[in-house]
Structures are given as structure tokens and as C-alpha cells.
Design a protein around this nucleic acid. Sequence first.
RNA 1: GUCACCAUCGUCUAGCCCGGUUAGGACGGCGGCCUCUCAAGCCGCUAAGACGGGUUCAAAUCCCGUUGGUGACGCCA
Length: 465
Amino acid sequence: MPDVVTRFAPSPTGHLHIGGARTAIFCWLLARHFDGRFYLRIEDTDLLRSKQEYTDAILASMRWLGLDWDGPPVFQSRRAALYNGLVDRLLTSGRAYWCGCTPEEVEAMRELARRNGAKPRYNGKCRDRCLGPGQGRCVRLKIPLTGKIVFDDMVKGRIAVDAGELDDMVIRRADGMPTYNLAVVADDNDMGVTHVIRGDDHVSNTPRQILIYQALGLPVPRFGHVPMILGHDRQKLSKRHGARSVIEYQRDGLLPQALVSYLARLGWSRGDQELFSPEELVRYFDGSNLNPAAAAFDPAKLEWTNARFMRSMPLAELARCVAPFVREAGFGCVPEERLVGLCVLFRERATDLRALAQSFRPLLVPAAELAINEKDAARHLTETGKSHLRALEAVFSSCAPFDAAAVNEALNSYVADNSLTFKQVAPPLRTALMGFMGGSHLNDIMAFLGREETLSRLRRAASFA
RNA sequence: GUCACCAUCGUCUAGCCCGGUUAGGACGGCGGCCUCUCAAGCCGCUAAGACGGGUUCAAAUCCCGUUGGUGACGCCA
């Protein structure tokens, strides 16, 4: 048995969002760090809202992020027998009882408690009525009237709640389906989960779940409640704040390693290090140093993180990653070698793969289709500028070999031989080649374009009206 | 309302457990260098321990309170 078993338990009612992704990352890291097991459990007991397409999408996002799980995913909807067995056990041992109160009655009890300034809860009416099964009856857990439930949270430290704060919760609905808290305990125990890491919106469920473990005589796992992610204005994260699903970040051209690094760093730290490869994360993340305070999501830093990964990753890999975006931009199928060349030229100038692909445009369209920026043209494709281009056309047609070094030398000679400055020649040349004043080094651009394409761009710009 | 949790630059954070730092790093912003452009890179600047009380020679650090924020209070998950 591995020492550490974690699980990620999304409910398939939507795509994997960044909050869930971060929780999944922490679970995965803890398991991988300790050489344990990481399981996936699909909490699909809400038949109405759960959808197969969301399950598929969540699994796809997990794979894209590189969060591999052990064994096949567990589906809660298929484990009714497990849950019912546990509820029956609780019933026979007298730790649970049948309750015949109607939802309206229970609501009235809550309302009464609220009026008295207390926490709204069930008053235990059926606790000692010794009711048996029946139409419309649910099963409630008989919780202790006094005492404290205490647990040491991995991120928040010791948390203590008075048992008196809790009420006899429903563990099996009138329709025979288990409730969330029971199913979670049953599954976590069955799967051998040792560390439950989840969002801190679950802290108040934890004492209830501990009570179920205790009533069943089962070992209680360790808990770690990671704070939720806030929007940039420190309000709850919503669509408006750029709270998007993992799949959207994928479509926008983020690198999965970058997203993982950023998300891990949001609420966790290791000294001053800002960027972490997946391997480093696995090596360093041991469940400690998790920040108990909620963190705000910062799109600017995510962007920076992504840009850094794009700049430092192997070129061949970058080229493979950008290929789908090049296709999507309508540039067709560009050979990998060309793609690598383009990445060299532009990767320092883009913060995501989609923008990187877009920046290739001027070099991938034929000279005739190159869009020429009017302002830059007016400024640099003057008569003098054009005369330089015509002269350069002659220079470059006899330049051999036509590589970055030779082109550079030819260009410098032209400048020197005619007592010019680079500053006089470069702008018109850049406008001719790129269509605007931007892009990479001129010699690299020309080397990439090749002689013929370079010359036709010079000709076209020289006759630009 | 009740309970629980949280509180360091605008943002992510280090330091806090084991009191003594010019409160460090990063993103962003601003300025500079570089430079044909845009970037990248490098350099510099910016800005913080919510508040009030204790304890102590000394408090971001320990204690209490206040305020503010978040979450939970379902026969949802």
C-alpha cells in the first residue's frame, strides 16, 4: 500500500475550471511526490446536471495538463450498492435513523431556529421515534449532542467545531440515493484515500464527514482545504474576471506547463522561485507551504509565465505546439523546419501560441499579399527609401550564399560604401520585408524568406504608391 | 443571523512556528541602457505587515479585541 493516496473528484456539470484544475494539480503533486496513487472520481450522482460530454472534457483537460491518474475513473452513479451497504450498517448499529419529517416541516424548523438567532437546522424530531422504512422517509445520521470535532488541516492548521453546531444530516434521501457527504466518505474509504485535498468551500462538510467515519469505525484521512481563487479585484472569481475553463486557455494558446506552474504558484511557494517545470513541482511539492489565504488570479502574471516557458522550451517542441495554431490561422501545413525557423524569429515577441502563430503571417504570405501599413509606408517608403530598396535589390541578388551572415555583411557594406547610416536604410527595408515596422532582425528575416521572396518584396515596395 | 476560516507592496508571495531584517523576491507600472522596429535582456525606481490594545528592552512575528473579507448553514455537489 502506498503511503499517500489522493483523488480528484469533479462533478461533470461543467468544464474543468482553473480552481478545480489547481486542486487537481495539488492532489496529483502530492501523490507523485510521495510515489503514491492519484485517482479520479466522477461525482455524477446529480443525474440531471451531469453530462457525459463534461466528463470527457474534464478528462481531456486533465490529460492536456499532464495530470495522469491511476486506474480507471470511478463513477459514483455506479456504486449505489456500496453506499446503501454503509447506510444499512449505520441503521443496524443505531447510529442512524429513519426520519419521516417532510421537507416543509424541516424548513419550518430552520425558520424557527433562524428567528431565534441560531443556525438553521433540523431539530432531531425523529431521532428517538424508532421509525422504520417507509414512503417519503430519509435516513439521518445520529450525531453526538456534545463534544468537539477537531482535525488538523494541512493548510489551515487545527480546526475545531462544536458538535452542537451540527444537526442530524440526511445520509440517504427518500428516493434511496445517498447524499454527497455519505458518498464521499464511502468512496474515499473504499479507494483507500489518505489525503483529501479540496477547495475550502468544503471545510464545513469536513466535521460532518468525520462524524460519518467515526460512526462507521473507519480511519479518518488527512484533510487539506485550499482557499478558493479570487478575481483580480479580490472578488469571487467569475466569468467577468477571466475565470475560464482550462479548455479555453488551451484554445488561447497557453502551454500546459505554464498554466500548471502558474496555478501551483498561486497559493503555494518555495522561496523566491517563480517558475517550475512539472518535474520540479513533483520534486518540491510535499503538501507544506500552502497559503491559507485566498489568492487573486492575475492574468498578467499568467501571461508572463507563459511567455517565459515559450522562450525557454526546446524549439522543436515549441514548433510542435504552435503547429495547430498555424493551421487554424489559415497558413496551411508549414513544414516543421520552417516552423522552427519562425519560432526562432518570433518567440521572444509573443506571449501565447496563438499570437505567435499570428506573428508568422507576414513571412508566410506571398509578397503580393503582404499587407503594408500605410503610416509606415508613408514614413519610410519615400523616394529615397525606395531608391535604397532598388539598390539593395542589386546587392542581394549577387549575395552568396544567401544566409543570415552573408546578407548581414552585404547590407553593412552597402551602408558603409555609400557613406550612409544603418538607420537610413533599415526602416524602408523593414517596411518592405514585413509590411510594417516590427518583427525580428532584418538579416534573419531575409534568410528565412530566401533570395527570391526577399527580392520580390523589395521590388513590390520600391514601386509602392 | 449563527458558525468556521482568512488578513505583508495594486497582484502572487518570503519572513511568522523558534520576537531583534534597511521587511526580501516576482508580476504590473514608471524610467534608463541596448537598438533600424517590436520584443527580449540588463539596470534603476515605485509600493506593504487592516486597526486598537496588551506581553516584552524589543512585535510583521506571541496574546486579546475590533474591523473587513470569504465560505458554510439543502432529502445540491
